[in-house]
Design a protein around this nucleic acid. Structure first.
Length: 279
DNA sequence: ATCCAGGATCTCC
DNA sequence: GGAGATCATGGA
């Protein structure tokens, strides 16, 4: 099998895939991973500082998917300046890069994410994909397209285990199919307009909208706030004091500026793995 | 077994 | 406009 090596600094395959931003990977033997995005599948591994592709297909696409052109060294340096907490979070997983994932899949995935555990979110997405997606040649399934979900009812989503999120998923598919939600169109919107457009879908609040903007549209100034970020922030930045969402947004914007999204992902992963602030 | 999760909505005031 | 209850489910 022909291997293609890719030198990409500040990149750990396992940290990037397993830090909670992505639900569509399969861990293989020898620290390799199979990843799927859209209709593309890739198997890759890591040898030292080199990423190893085990096929030449779609390599430029995957380099973009892994945000390969961005200088994460500079970002981390800016974030760590005068911030020992961030320095610790980053040193815990310095190889996280923010993926550029497909819009519809991220939309549905983060609708499913609400009030749900990551392992369970993965399971639901896997079921949805097996039921309605397209099989690939190595036993993986692509996430279903809006067309493939067109006739799926709320009750069917519920029977798959999606619970109360079923009606949100129906609404999301309807609105996307009705038009005005292509990633090309959405990408032209300002971050504020994009957030409001996304929140017009039932079941998409600010947090889910921010995740979509961060993980699919590269809006790195957003700072999605979930239970873990709230805990980490109040616990380590505010001495255990509770803090309102509005205040937290303001603090994060002031402290991290255009790097807020990166900061959020380092902090989220660190807080969740270390169970910071959990009683 | 009980708790809880990458929240959003609805219902009150 | 803000606080509180409610929502389904299974992994831990």
């Amino acid at each position: 099998m022909k291997k293609v090596f890719w030198e990409c600094p500040d990149f750990s395959l396992s940290q990037t895939l397993e830090c909670g931003q992505c639900f569509r990977y399969r861990k293989e033997k020898d620290n390799c991973y199979t990843v799927i995005s859209g209709q593309r599948v890739v198997t890759l591994g890591q040898e030292g500082d080199s990423i190893v592709f085990y096929s030449e297909d779609d390599i430029p696409f995957w380099k973009g998917y892994f945000d390969g052109e961005r200088n994460y060294g500079e970002i981390k340096q800016r974030l760590c300046k005068d911030d020992p907490i961030m320095a610790e979070a980053i040193s815990f997983a310095p190889g996280i890069r923010l993926l550029r994932q497909e819009f519809f899949e991220i939309l549905m995935s983060f609708i499913l994410s609400q009030n749900n555990h990551i392992p369970r979110i993965r399971g639901l997405i896997q079921k949805l994909s097996e039921e309605y997606g397209t099989p690939t040649d190595d036993g993986f399934y692509s996430f279903p397209t809006p067309q493939q979900l067109e006739r799926v009812s709320e009750d069917t989503y519920r029977s798959l285990g999606c619970g109360f999120r079923g009606r949100y998923m129906v609404d999301a598919v309807e609105k996307v199919l009705a038009g005005g939600f292509s990633s090309e169109e959405l990408d032209k919107l300002s971050t504020e307009d994009l957030r409001h457009r996304l929140m017009s879908i039932c079941g998409v609040g600010q947090k889910v909208a921010d995740c979509i903007m961060l993980f699919s549209f590269g809006r790195y100034e957003v700072f999605p706030m979930d239970v873990w970020i709230n805990r980490v922030y109040s616990h380590v930045y505010c001495g255990g004091e509770k803090i309102t969402a509005k205040e937290l947004q303001k603090l994060a914007a002031h402290r991290f500026g255009d790097d807020a999204g990166f900061a959020q992902q380092y902090l989220f992963h660190y807080g969740r793995e270390k169970k910071i602030g959990k009683v």
